[in-house]
């Protein structure tokens, strides 16, 4: 059974997403909507991380051994010029959050499939509770990107 592996992966993706959302919130104190909503959404991911840790022992995974790596994706430039251009950096950060939350949503899909295959209603309900919130995080990043990009790109 590979559900333990799926849980470990999901823990990684949700905890890096939580860290990244908080980091983006901190990085843009003057972009108030990004600042505030990103922090609200980080709380969702932290909640997901707790739910994963609670489910882990049943699949032979030691919660203490779950990894919470630093977001590594920032090493890769998301958009040209993001290092020197604060406006491009904002677009890059939103783009990155979109991909990361999209990845988490997919991972929840996988876990939900697994939970059904092994007939674990408890795990299925965790997946059903968390997956829509990953999708909402993703939609938020996309909506925000669509709202702020025209002015940034046109000026």
């Amino acid at each position: 059974m590979r559900i333990g592996a799926a849980l470990r992966e999901l823990h990684r993706s949700e905890s890096t997403l939580a860290t990244e959302l908080s980091r983006v919130a901190e990085r843009y104190p003057k972009e108030k909507e990004v600042h505030h909503v990103a922090e609200d959404l980080a709380a969702w991911s932290r909640d997901h991380v707790r739910a994963i840790a609670e489910a882990a022992p049943r699949y032979g995974v030691d919660p203490a051994a779950l990894e919470s790596p630093e977001p590594s994706e920032e090493a890769q430039p998301e958009l040209p010029g993001e290092g020197s251009d604060k406006e491009m950096a904002l677009l890059a950060d939103l783009r990155r959050l979109y991909r990361m939350s999209g990845g988490a949503a997919l991972d929840w899909d996988l876990l939900g499939q697994g939970a059904q295959a092994v007939a674990d209603p408890e795990l299925l309900s965790v997946a059903e509770r968390c997956r829509p919130r990953s999708v909402r995080q993703m939609r938020w990043a996309r909506g925000m990107l669509k709202a702020v990009s025209p002015q940034i790109l046109a000026t």
Binding site: E33, V37, L41, R136, Q137, R139, W140, R142, G143, K146
Partner: peptide, 9 residues
């Protein structure tokens, strides 16, 4: 819109 995030559908 999403009533928490404000993201448009």
């Amino acid at each position: 819109k999403d009533l928490v995030t404000g993201a448009p559908s």
